[in-house]
Write a protein that binds this DNA or RNA. Structure first.
Length: 139
DNA sequence: GCCAACGTTGGC
DNA sequence: GCCAACGTTGGC
């Protein structure tokens, strides 16, 4: 099982929007970046991910699960663009801010820090555990 | 609102 | 196949 991070501007698609979708989930559409798409191609059903709010909040606010593997992005006919479906699993009790991530040596190598523009990115098991712990998420 | 970093496009 | 120009993202 692998771990990921999904980034979204709350004004476009927020954690609350994701929660409202419940177990039905929603496709992670609109990605128009090859690197991000390639990561989605690697995702398996059951993989977990962080839901990160960019822009104003800049925090990991939730945990999501991949519920459908890669398929055509329904918002375009362009066959280059594919996406997965994800659903909300739980809310992070203490959102983990970018500032905290940057100052924690365990998280200094995160893609979020290294390549802030990538909207879908892999997270290592160690990074996953560290953020769960900082965020007060019970395993 | 600015701008650095990065990705994509298109002319050659 | 290179690279200049341009567009977008996201932190500050």
């Amino acid at each position: 099982m692998r771990y990921w991070l999904f980034k979204s501007e709350p004004s476009t698609w927020s954690w609350q929007n994701q929660i409202d979708k419940g177990d039905e989930g929603e496709e992670w559409d609109g990605v128009r970046n090859y690197q991000a798409r390639n990561f989605m191609r690697e995702m398996k059903k059951g993989d977990l991910g962080f839901f990160y709010h960019s822009q104003k909040e800049k925090s990991v606010v939730g945990i999501v699960e991949v519920i459908a593997e890669v398929h055509q992005d329904s918002t375009t006919d362009d066959e280059r663009w594919e996406c997965v479906d994800i659903k909300a699993v739980s809310t992070v009790p203490n959102p983990v801010s970018l500032e905290m991530i940057k100052t924690d040596p365990r998280l200094a190598e995160m893609v979020l820090v290294k390549n802030s523009r990538l909207s879908v990115q892999p997270v290592t098991e160690h990074e996953w555990q560290a953020i769960l712990s900082i965020g007060g998420v019970k395993n």
